[in-house]
Computed example of a mutant assay.
Amino acid sequence: MAEIEGETAPGFEGVRDAFAANFAEGAEVGAAVSVYRHGEKVVDLWGGIADPQQARPWQRDTLQAVYSTTKGATSACALLLVQRGELDLDAPVRDYWPEFTAPVKVRWLLTHQAGLPALDRPVPLADALAWDPMVDALAAQRPFWTPGTEHGYHGLTFGWLVGEVIRRVSGRSLGTFFRDEIAEPLDLDFWIGLPKPQHHRLSRIVMPEPDPDAMAGFNLDDLPEQLRDVLAAYTDPTSLTSRTYDAVEPRMDNNDPDVLAAEIPATNGVCTARALARFYAALIGGLLEPDTLALATTEQAAGRDRIMRIPVRWSTGYALWTSEAPWLPQTMFGFSGLGGSIGFADPETGLAFGYVMNRLSDGLTPDPRAARLVTATINSIKEQR
């Protein structure tokens, strides 16, 4: 059984028990979880193996690629510019990015309503890592729906779209802006574009093992209609869903040092669980002023997402609570990532939460590891009231 290291404040021992249970059941290889309450650290735990190929243990400062959990950091950069009066959410994107052709408001980039989740032709991986070829392609792309009328998860393009607006306004790349304005002032182990000298601290991602018997006796017609719709969207290579995740060809690999060294603000953030929780603690602790924080917590679009094919609720830059993950606080805002990582804050209870891990889940259902940890955290808070 993996040794669990770290600390919990009195009353939060249940989170340690939940974290240990994830390992005991074989659900984890290496992982970390951190919780802040009203700006104070109450949970900081880690354990397991960071790199199975080298049998390297997970340490206090082990870094983890967190996929779309990165989007929460990217959104915060945009909201800081809004807070400073340098970015108008209701202005056309072309006011800041003249080459951009679609009739899209800045706000719609952050609420996944721009209609630009995919490209007519996938961009080669080398071009995606170089930045300019990707933003040039997005600037010329016709929307797949009338902007502002529907919402669909911009799984990859979100980062380049929001990041290029930030670059045009601030004169700095998204990764540089995040480092200068958020990560370094808060002393966070959090990067979008990981410097090569930090790569030795990285955990290695462990992909889910395929189950050859999983489809035995499987009948698509036996599934509920929504699940049939989801599976059809993800398995049809011509669907807009598949094209969204295939906007870069070949797909990016977050075990690739070149991918992690580039700036991919939708998917290649690297951090510790501690940094992720502290980041969200800062958002509700004064980094975002009340009017700006309200943008992050107020619903802007809701209903079945055109890309993910499940019900979602979007604020300006963040995901909000839905019944798809009932274990989350109903007043939370945050972002989760491929395979299970999640960061969020709940202004009502002063809770800020970060969970990172290297074994990816299959992604078909909400991750039970995160659900167990969040549930234990909420129960610990309830018991102290």
Rank of each mutant, 00 (worst) to 15 (best):
E150S: 08
S336Q: 07
A91P: 12
P208M: 07
P117K: 02
M134K: 07
R168D: 13
T292I: 05
G148P: 01
A24K: 11
R16M: 09
E99Y: 08
L109A: 02
R56W: 00
E25I: 05
N379S: 08
M134R: 07
M308F: 10
Y355D: 12
W108C: 00
N358F: 04
M1Y: 06
D291K: 15
E249G: 02
R274E: 15
E184C: 06
T8R: 04
W327V: 10
T331C: 01
T62Q: 11
G155N: 03
F100T: 04
W321M: 08
A345L: 09
A262K: 01
V104W: 02
R204H: 14
L260N: 04
V104N: 00
S361Y: 07
W321R: 10
A294P: 11
Q141D: 01
N379H: 11
I264E: 00
K71G: 05
L276Q: 01
I342Q: 14
L63V: 06
E7Q: 10
T146A: 12
D222I: 08
Q141E: 07
F144M: 04
M332F: 06
W314Q: 03
Y153K: 00
E5I: 11
G47H: 02
G85T: 07
D95Y: 08
Q113G: 05
R306H: 02
L293A: 09
L338A: 14
P347E: 03
R372H: 10
T349E: 05
A370R: 14
E348S: 11
E184A: 15
N255V: 06
Q64H: 12
A345D: 06
L338V: 13
E40N: 03
D362Y: 03
A128S: 10
A73D: 06
S75P: 03
E13G: 15
T70I: 06
T241C: 04
